[in-house]
Write a protein that binds this DNA or RNA. Structure first.
Lengths: 81, 81
DNA sequence: CGGTATCCAAAGTGATACTG
DNA sequence: CAGTATCACTTTGGATACCG
């Protein structure tokens, strides 16, 4: 949920950037979730074959719908004492 | 999530009633979740000392807030092919 | 840089049996 | 009726190490 929310807030993000914003999840967990979300068509993965490698993640149209519906819930969750 | 949603849709519900509407969760799971939600002040538990015993569950004000914020998400999830 | 592979510990779930 | 207790099993997540 936070993953979707964070990507949605930034339009496009690189892996390391996501990691920095999601310090309570490990690398492998983020990686696995990204795979799942890509599989579920919520997130797109764009790989640039450069050196150093660069990969960008962004929400799909579906992903944005989920993100919108998620916002109010996350807002409630985070403002709860 | 479904638990909150279902209780919210019925105002007040008895345990067996909840079980009937949530056939994919076992008795013990429903019981544990209800305890947690009560602990988190999302659900109230009202026990009537009669024979046969009767216990009613309802959402608190907080619970209703969550339920509202949950609806659009659940709606999206269930209408997804 | 952007991951994957491996292993392990912890949490979640269900089936079954039993209780006030 | 409304649960709890126990146990086996599955799922999830993190730590660590390594790779193209």
């Amino acid at each position: 949920m936070q993953l979707i929310s964070i990507i949605g807030a930034h339009q496009t993000m690189r892996f390391a950037e996501i990691e920095a914003h999601l310090s309570d999840a490990s690398t492998s967990t983020i990686s696995k979730r990204l795979d799942e979300f890509e599989e579920a068509d919520l997130v797109t993965r764009t790989q640039y074959d450069e050196i150093p490698p660069r990969v960008e993640y962004a929400l799909t149209k579906e992903g944005n719908e989920v993100q919108e519906r998620l916002e109010s819930l996350l807002e409630w969750a985070t403002t709860r004492s």
